[in-house]
Simulated assay, not measured.
Amino acid sequence: MSSAAAKISPLDEAVSGDQAANGRAVPRPSAEELLTANINPRTGLATDYLNHFNEAIMLLEMIPDLPDCAEDFLSWQPLSYAEHFRAANFKARELAISTYETADPAIRGEFDNITRTMTSILTAVGDAMRQMQQDKSRAQLAEQATGWVKPLVTLAGGIINGSGHEADVDGIMTA
């Protein structure tokens, strides 16, 4: 077992600062509960949120072959992590939201920065597509946008799964 895997995250310990309405400490969910809910116990994040961005990517990928899909992409709306889970048919939505809110601020900050970047790109692409009249121009923009957002989804997935930038640096150094 690597030293990184052996580290205990704040989500693995009991909460000392979180208080219930009655003033008592609220215990954190167990790693087993989080895993069952598809939430990473080390980071407190769920990959299900990335489905929101993957939906936009899928629509962008369809535009070159099916130009009418541009209208479907233009109806895509950005959602925050909590908004996504509140709207999704995700059994453990409240658990996903609460573990996100109590996740390590550095991890959550890095994750939020990447998801804000993806949202900004997708929003700007939508604004630009609304100004375009030619299907060919929309198709070119869709292909470019896919190339910009897909690597960010992969990076966000790495953060969710606990690898973040360290894995990227290790991979580059060994290549």
Rank of each mutant, 00 (worst) to 15 (best):
P78R: 06
Y81R: 07
Y81E: 04
A82P: 03
A82C: 11
E83Y: 14
H84I: 04
R86L: 14
A87Q: 09
A88G: 08
N89H: 12
A92C: 08
R93F: 05
E94L: 05
E94V: 00
L95P: 03
I97K: 13
I97G: 12
S98W: 03
S98Q: 10
Y100P: 13
A103E: 00
A106G: 06
I107F: 01
R108F: 00
G109C: 06
G109R: 02
E110L: 15
E110A: 15
E110T: 14
F111I: 04
F111C: 03
D112L: 10
D112G: 10
N113V: 06
N113I: 08
I114H: 09
I114M: 13
I114V: 15
T115Q: 04
R116V: 02
M118G: 10
T119H: 05
T119E: 13
S120F: 03
L122E: 12
A124D: 13
G126W: 01
A128H: 01
A128E: 04
A128Q: 03
M129D: 01
R130W: 00
R130S: 10
R130G: 15
M132H: 07
M132I: 02
M132P: 06
M132G: 09
Q133F: 09
Q134C: 05
Q134H: 07
Q134I: 06
K136Q: 06
S137A: 09
R138I: 00
A139E: 02
A142M: 01
A142N: 04
E143R: 14
Q144D: 13
Q144V: 10
G147E: 05
V149W: 08
K150Q: 13
P151N: 11
V153A: 15
V153W: 10
V153C: 15
V153L: 13
T154K: 15
T154N: 14
T154D: 15
T154F: 07
A156D: 07
G158P: 06
I159Q: 07
I160E: 11
I160S: 11
N161Q: 04
N161S: 11
N161I: 00
G164Q: 00
H165G: 13
E166M: 07
E166R: 08
D168F: 13
D168A: 14
V169Q: 03
D170K: 09
G171W: 01
I172K: 08
I172H: 09
T174I: 04
A175K: 09
A175M: 03
A175P: 04
